[in-house]
């Protein structure tokens, strides 16, 4: 990872019809990092990315992309996969990739050669000369993804790249993103699926209601919630409750409670002393999903039409 920031945004604001859909968002994407922008639907993720790409102009705030205040000045060094995928249906797959490269300054001949090689690499070699309209949705999406990197950009922006992909292709995409990072590219992507972000992000920002609610590493996010203890006594009765912290909740044979400030050891000593025994014990760190729900708020997530796992902290 380099020292400089590939992308910075300071107080970005965008209003649609008087409504502030992005309201003072700050981002700092380190060079060479995989940076996730997380948020529920309608949080302002796509609008933020579009402002950083120069597709739309912010109503307020400052941005710097690859060292330039105007993203257009470095458009040849940026790759972009929009949320709404789109290719010309009558184009052949190889030509579509070369065309996307040509828009970013790659000569057509090189683009076509790279396109064929890249398609071969991802298992689409048989479809090089197929027209886009004949490809499956997943294949077309992969073609567009290849088109976004064929010119070997320094910054790759992916808007909801995992949506619409089956689990196998999602896994392939994760590997693809990691490979791009290893190549030296900075990757900025948006998602509302926490598992991908948890696995691959070096840093992330959580946006909700147009505002940035969190910025840091995955560990930082998870660390915002206390660890939890899952304890199973040998004695299945309720008498053990008197020896547990007040927030302990029974879930079948298992008791759950937050890891106490003084650690678990004093409590364990008491439990053993009182003869409740230890049939099972584990200390869990909260996942990114739980941290996300905690940061954004259950109501905001439900308002965005997304499911919230039961039992999550709000």
């Amino acid at each position: 990872m380099g020292d400089a920031s590939a992308v910075t945004a300071t107080g970005l604001v965008k209003k649609f019809g008087g409504r502030r859909v992005v309201d003072g968002v700050d981002l700092t994407v380190p060079t060479g990092a995989i940076y996730g922008v997380l948020g529920p639907n309608g949080a302002g993720k796509t609008t933020t990315l579009r402002m950083l790409l120069g597709i739309i102009e912010p109503d307020g705030g400052e941005r710097s992309v690859l060292g330039h205040a105007n993203p257009r000045a470095v458009s040849d060094s940026i790759g972009y996969l929009p949320e709404e995928r789109g290719l010309y249906p009558a184009m052949k797959a190889r030509d579509a990739i070369a065309f996307l490269g040509a828009l970013r300054g790659l000569d057509r001949k090189t683009g076509r050669a790279r396109a064929a090689a890249m398609m071969e690499e991802v298992g689409l070699g048989h479809a090089v000369d197929e027209k886009i309209r004949k490809l499956s949705k997943g294949m077309a999406q992969l073609v567009q993804l290849l088109g976004s990197v064929v010119h070997r950009p320094a910054l790759l922006v992916l808007d909801e790249p995992f949506s619409g992909l089956d689990p196998v292709n999602q896994e392939k995409l994760e590997a693809f993103i990691l490979a791009e990072r290893d190549r030296g590219a900075t990757i900025l992507f948006s998602t509302h699926i926490m598992s991908h972000a948890e696995r691959i992000c070096d840093r992330l920002a959580i946006i909700a209601g147009g505002k940035r609610r969190f910025e840091g590493t995955v560990d930082d996010a998870r660390g915002m919630l206390p660890q939890r203890v899952l304890y199973t006594p040998r004695d299945p009765g309720d008498a053990v409750a008197a020896a547990l912290p007040r927030d302990a909740v029974r879930d079948g044979a298992v008791w759950r409670f937050e890891l106490p400030d003084g650690g678990i050891e004093p409590w364990l000593a008491t439990l053993i002393e009182r003869g409740h025994g230890i049939a099972g014990l584990s200390i869990e760190r909260p996942g990114l999903h739980e941290a996300f729900v905690s940061i954004v708020g259950r109501d905001a997530i439900e308002a965005a039409g997304e499911p919230v796992a039961p039992g999550m902290a709000a």
């Binding site: 120069g54 597709i55 458009s75 940026i78 972009y80 789109g86 010309y88 996307l100 828009l103 567009q144």
Partner: peptide, 15 residues
């Protein structure tokens, strides 16, 4: 054509 195929977003980002 670009609007219907949603290619406009890619074009607008690059050009």
């Amino acid at each position: 054509e670009e609007r219907n195929n949603k290619v406009i977003e890619v074009l607008a980002a690059a050009v």
